[in-house]
Structure formats: structure tokens, C-alpha cells
Design a binder for these strands. Sequence first.
DNA 1: ACGCACTGATAGTAACACTATCGATAGTAC
DNA 2: GTACTATCGATAGTGTTACTATCAGTGCGT
Lengths: 230, 230
Amino acid sequence: MRISELSRRSGAPVSTLKYFLREGLLREGERLSGNQTSYDDSHVQRVRLVRALLDTGGLSIAAAKRVLATLDDENSSLAHTFEAAQHALGVGRDGSSRAAASEAARERIARVAARNSWHTSPENPGFEISARVLDDLAAIGYEPSDAYLAAYAAAADTIAHADLGALRDRESADLIAELMIVGTVLGDALIAGLRRLAQESATEELFPVAEPRADARPSGARQPQRRDPK
Amino acid sequence: MRISELSRRSGAPVSTLKYFLREGLLREGERLSGNQTSYDDSHVQRVRLVRALLDTGGLSIAAAKRVLATLDDENSSLAHTFEAAQHALGVGRDGSSRAAASEAARERIARVAARNSWHTSPENPGFEISARVLDDLAAIGYEPSDAYLAAYAAAADTIAHADLGALRDRESADLIAELMIVGTVLGDALIAGLRRLAQESATEELFPVAEPRADARPSGARQPQRRDPK
DNA sequence: ACGCACTGATAGTAACACTATCGATAGTAC
DNA sequence: GTACTATCGATAGTGTTACTATCAGTGCGT
């Protein structure tokens, strides 16, 4: 197929496809002559993958490029592909480099990991991401309890095993690698969505709407001293 | 304190603080005279909250503004604040409006919710977010199993109860509302980080590095993935 | 032989999140 | 009282990102 059909089948404008080509997010098609290039179903697939990474996954073009590069790297074991993809994903959704997390926060995350018998490399970006959240919470004045972190860790463990379990019964190594990466990126969005649902439910459970408490003031503009009295 | 000290204490440049003021992310201080305005600790706190929302939570200025507006809305019940915050967060991290999820995907999410006895409003953005992931996975050629979704839902349930549990023993309604919102936004990042750690561990567990498959090239020095060639 | 789709290259655009500059003013130091 | 410095609101400018548009040249199909 030519680029116009690739556009029609993938839903992306031709100009965007050319942009993806330029940026290396999409392999070049087979050149038939000076002004004819042929694309196939794998290109359609790839465009959809890129759109999912960008839109649902919230990745930047640069991050998507790194992720796809590890995917296209043939001579890697699964574990290595995964590790590379994790690094390619980086610390944020984009490639932004903010201040690093504190050592204390990183150590607390390490303790959580140890308690779950996770064995991980110290360069796993998960340390940085999680530790930064702890630092942010501390800056806001909130110190999460061990039980809170343990619950999050248990949930992470559940998810990770579900992800890997979904992979186990696949045959092609290529497909496994792709699913692994897609699962990492889209799984973040999936858990975020489900969490919104679970939270609404849990909120009503614990704080019913017909709350007789008179916490809501009629008007008064008092300055609340928000500080955690730890 | 004056704006320069607010800057020093919060770590944000004065020009950025003025920007936050303009955008309504930060309440105006108390005007003492034509060119003197006094800020207090609550402003320092707020700046840190905004930075956490923007940097770690990945929110856009517009989304952060909506979220903070619901937080500042005094006459709301907790449940209502939460609901408003969920909507303020919107479907993506930013306010981008992409194509809606399919009805089939939305129904599948509804079934998952029902199986967990979540009772939620149909407008909860969690439906849209999760359903879109399902659509994306389908477009990639992957149909997640019920077991897979069930595991994610169980994890979401665990997290939601941990979040709410952390709130229950707080006294001030203002603080609870703030934590609820921060928890929603930063919690996404926290679970993402922990998930990365759990996945690395689970990957090694299920796909050991010394894999006898012919796909893995056991030759020692792997080319590190292309770092940023900029 | 003519027209249209295609090619790569380059230029332009819109949104976003700041960041810098400005003239006017006012509090503080001497 | 004068000099100095910080602040004020307003406005303009900057760098990045993710496209989107235009263009000159090429060649397949009828």
C-alpha cells in the first residue's frame, strides 16, 4: 500500500506519518522507485502502537522513540529488553530531569522492595520514581505509613505477576517483547483508570454522602494551618 | 513574608510565582500597601503542592488549576470534593480530548467493576481511561483475559482502600481533602514506580536470564541502547 | 502526454510553561 | 530628605514539543 492508504487505515494524517518516519518511530517502507514506497500491515500496526504510546501512555516522541528502539533491537533477551525499555521510559513520562530523590526516600523504597523479596537492580527507574513521590508527600506535610506503602507494594506485585502471566503463554518472542512494553506503558493507564473507579466506591463506603458532620462551614474564610502534626 | 522569601523558601523563581498567581494556582497574599504583599506558610505549602502536581503528577497548568479549585471550594462534602477532583483530573493527564472509548470496552470495564462490587457513577472518568486502554490493546492485537483484568481490579481495590484508610484517622476536613487529591495524583506515580520494581523481579522469576531459547545471544557485552545522541 | 499521487526537505504553527523586562511605586538605610 | 532597593502589575519574549503545510521535483497510469 502507499502512504495515503496507510494514512486511511491507521487514521493518522499523511503529514504525521512523514513526521513519524523522520523521527524514526516508523520504519521506512520498501522503495519501489524514486517516488513510490510500499507499506504493509506491520506499518499499520506500528502506527497504532505509536498512537497508543503517545496518547494513552502519555509518552513524548523522544521517549516513544527510545522504547521502540529497544523493541526493534533483535539481539536481546526478554529480560534485557524489559530492562532497556524501563530505562527508555525513564523517570517521568517525558524525558524531563528534575531534582533527584533523597537518599532517605530511596532507602525506604528499597526496604519496601526487600520486604516483598523483589530483587532488582539499583538502576531501576522505579526507585527514583517512587522515592520522588515520597519526597513530594513529605514536602506537602504527609508521611505515609508502612501499612500504606505495603498495600501499594502488594498491588504492584499483583499487577506485575498478572502482566508476566499474560506473557507466558505466548509463542513468538517478538510478540512477547511488544506486549511487555505495551503492557508497561498502557498498564499504568489501566491501573489509573480502575483506581478511579475503586476510589469512588471506597469513598462512599467510608465517607457516606449523607454525612451528618458539620465540617463544611457556611462561609468563613479562615486560614487553615495545614501541617501534619505527625 | 514577601515574595522573595516565598521564592527562597519554596524553591520557585519569583517570576514563576507571579505566573502561578496570574493563573490562579496560588492565592494572592495580603496586600499591605501598593507594592507590598505578605505571604505566609500556607503559600509556601501551596507552591510545593503545585510543583508536586505538575512535576511528579505530570498535570498541566490547566488541570492543576481545576484540581486546586475543587480543593479550595469550601462548601463540599468529602465525597463531592473527590468526585469533582476526579473530573478535574479528566481523562488524560492534560485536558486533551481524543476519540472516545468504544461501548464494548466500556461495558467490559463495567462488568469488572460490578464483579468487584464497586458502585460508581457512570460519569467517573475511570471508565473512559480504562476502556481506552482496552481499545488500544485491541488495536495492537491483544485481547486481555478476564484473569488479567481481575488482577488489575484487585490491585486497584487494594490501593483505593489504602488511600482511604490513610485518610480516616485525620482530623481536619481540609487536610483530608488535600491528601485525597494529592493521593490520587501522586498515587498514580507511586504505583507506577513500584510496579517497575515488581516487574523487574517478576521478569527474572519467569524468564530467567540464562534462557536456552535461541533468541537470546549470550555473548557478554551487550550494546547499550542508544542513549540520547543529541 | 498529461495529471495526479508521491517523494524528501524545509518552513510554519499553536499550545504550553515559563522567564525577562518595564515603569511606577514604596518602604528602608543613612 | 535623598539614595537605594524591593516590590508591584502588565506585557512581551523564549524554548520546546508535536505536529502541519508548502514546495519543487519525480514518475506511474491512462
